[in-house]
């Protein structure tokens, strides 16, 4: 399109790669935390499964329906938090929120692919797509007992 460069700031190659080949997609065996999260304004749905052992996220998987931004973000998020202590994962979520809202953020974590989502700052209507999976993780870790099923 005439404004390809504008679209490219949002739809970076790495994002489309996660959308097309999502990591950690599917169901997990055994006892896990299940969290369902919807974006009520658009109908996007994420179901996140987390395995927490000794306050550490030992595994993370997701299934869901949504746009390229919400699903690629879910894929990247599960990659990023796997192996992280719960505390760090929650901190990363805060940092991610700051990043997509265009605020200054702490660079203590290597966010890797996730930084490709910075383009979202130029598309305010899509910030909620990017944060959906992260919010699901926060909900799961914050309300551990309620959400276990």
């Amino acid at each position: 399109m005439s404004s390809h460069s504008n679209l490219d700031t949002l739809y970076r190659q790495v994002i489309m790669d996660h959308y097309k080949n999502p990591r950690n997609k599917g169901d997990m065996e055994g006892e896990t935390l299940h969290v369902n999260m919807n974006n009520p304004t658009c109908g996007d749905r994420i179901q996140l499964q987390l395995k927490v052992e000794d306050d550490k996220i030992s595994d993370a998987k997701f299934v869901g329906e949504g746009c390229s931004i919400s699903l690629s973000s879910a894929s990247m998020m599960t990659e990023a938090v796997k192996g992280q202590p719960v505390e760090n994962a929650l901190e990363m979520s805060d940092i991610f929120s700051q990043m997509v809202q265009g605020e200054d953020y702490d660079d203590k974590y290597d966010l890797g692919d996730i930084e490709a989502l910075q383009g979202v700052t130029k598309f305010p209507a899509r910030i909620k797509c990017a944060t959906l999976a992260w919010k699901a993780m926060e909900k799961g870790l914050g309300n551990e007992e309620e959400e276990t099923d």
Binding site: N6, L7, C42, G66, C67, S68, A125, R126, C129
Partner: peptide, 13 residues
């Protein structure tokens, strides 16, 4: 093509 992605691409135009 997810409708959100379509709407964002159209908005750019």
């Amino acid at each position: 093509l997810h409708p959100h992605d379509a709407a964002t691409a159209l908005d750019i135009e």
